[in-house]
């Protein structure tokens, strides 16, 4: 990774979420959701702050963070691309959306999911419930359906242009 994508965690932010959501054990999931919606992942520092300032234990925070597929422990790019891998998308070519997007973002290492320039992260998600428009993907919060690999790239290029991000030119 050419630049660090690690987020800088503000103590005040975490405290305000604890104040709003609560500090009992049943607040674990919503607290982590608040952290992730701000930073795109769960920075270690934010989890430590939760443990120190609530009744939630470290094992519970880590247990929950590693159980649910929504939570990530690794930093993400500036924008998220979520490729749906529900059944309908699987049988209509969700694989090709992954291939074509990884190609245009030049992500060649199978272990990686974020472009070298920190622009986009590709995530595979379970069904987003738009099965009749399969295959479907979501860039940031824009849903596009009935895609081929080539027009998935087109959708990404359009988003990149609007957000001044650089993707490979194919």
């Amino acid at each position: 990774m050419s630049q660090s994508l690690e987020a800088k965690v503000e103590f005040e932010d975490v405290l305000s979420w604890i104040k709003r959501i609560g500090s009992d054990s049943s607040s674990t999931v919503p607290l982590l959701q608040a952290v992730q919606s701000k930073y795109g992942y769960l920075p270690r520092a934010a989890m430590d702050m939760i443990i120190q300032n609530t009744d939630i234990t470290g094992s519970q925070v880590y247990g929950v963070a590693t159980f649910y597929s929504q939570f990530r422990l690794k930093p993400v790019g500036r924008h998220m691309i979520r490729v749906c891998h529900g059944t309908a998308c699987h049988v209509t070519g969700a694989d090709r959306l992954d291939t074509s997007l990884r190609h245009i973002l030049n992500i060649t290492d199978e272990e990686q999911d974020t472009a070298e320039n920190g622009s986009y992260t590709i995530e595979q998600v379970a069904c987003i419930g738009c099965c009749s428009q399969a295959p479907v993907l979501v860039i940031a919060d824009e849903v596009s359906g009935n895609l081929t690999g080539a027009n998935a790239q087109r959708a990404l290029k359009k988003h990149a242009k609007k957000n001044e991000e650089i993707v490979a030119n194919i």
Partner: peptide
């Protein structure tokens, strides 16, 4: 809000999830 776990469709798992586990 769920956090992405298919097993939470099962009643007791869903309850555990709301309880923060």
């Amino acid at each position: 809000e769920g956090a992405g776990a298919f097993v939470c469709g099962e009643e007791t798992a869903l309850i555990a999830s709301i309880e923060g586990d």
